[in-house]
């Protein structure tokens, strides 16, 4: 942990950034996709991201939305792997690939695909909660 001279607690400023109209929309969309509570997602974002990245979240989400129609229907795109590791990096790469692996394994062992997806999303939720 690096400590700086005259460091301030920035939580309040970051929350102000997250409360603009465009951010509300994006955060609501993410919450709906992963079944999260808004408070928890906001808290995680405030902890992980610096202020310029926070400002840029709506634009980054839009980039991912634009790639959606081209991407083929796969487990990765349905879980939103690039969204959570590159565009809005809430989850580390290895954790994400672990989740994808698990889901793939479940499907190959004859699990119902919908059920597997649901569990995959639940795992993502777990990671964000922690």
């Amino acid at each position: 942990m690096v400590t700086y001279l005259y460091e301030r607690d920035l939580t309040e400023m970051k929350l102000i950034i997250l409360s603009s109209a465009l951010h509300e929309k994006t955060v609501a969309a993410l919450c709906k996709k992963y079944g999260l509570r808004r408070q928890i997602l906001r808290k995680k974002m405030i902890r992980l991201f610096d202020m310029s990245l926070l400002e840029n979240i709506p634009a980054r989400y839009e980039v991912w939305e634009k790639t959606l129609p081209e991407a083929k229907e796969s487990i990765e795109s349905r879980l939103g792997v690039t969204l959570l590791t590159q565009q809005i990096p809430l989850i580390a790469d290895d954790e994400m690939s672990f989740i994808v692996q698990q889901t793939n394994k479940k499907i190959s062992t004859g699990y119902n695909e919908e059920q597997a997806m649901k569990e995959g999303i639940a795992m993502i939720r777990e990671v964000i909660h922690s």
């Binding site: 603009s20 109209a21 465009l22 929309k25 610096d50 310029s52 990245l53 400002e55 840029n56 709506p58 634009a59």
Partner: peptide, 29 residues
């Protein structure tokens, strides 16, 4: 500019996305 107005031309919600938001983020990261 993402604007929605009511019937008298008053602003209901507005979202402004300026270019610097993206460019500064790109620059710093």
């Amino acid at each position: 500019y993402d604007i929605s107005t009511d019937i008298r031309g008053r602003i209901k919600t507005i979202g402004i996305r300026t270019p610097s938001i993206m460019n500064i983020e790109a620059c710093v990261h």
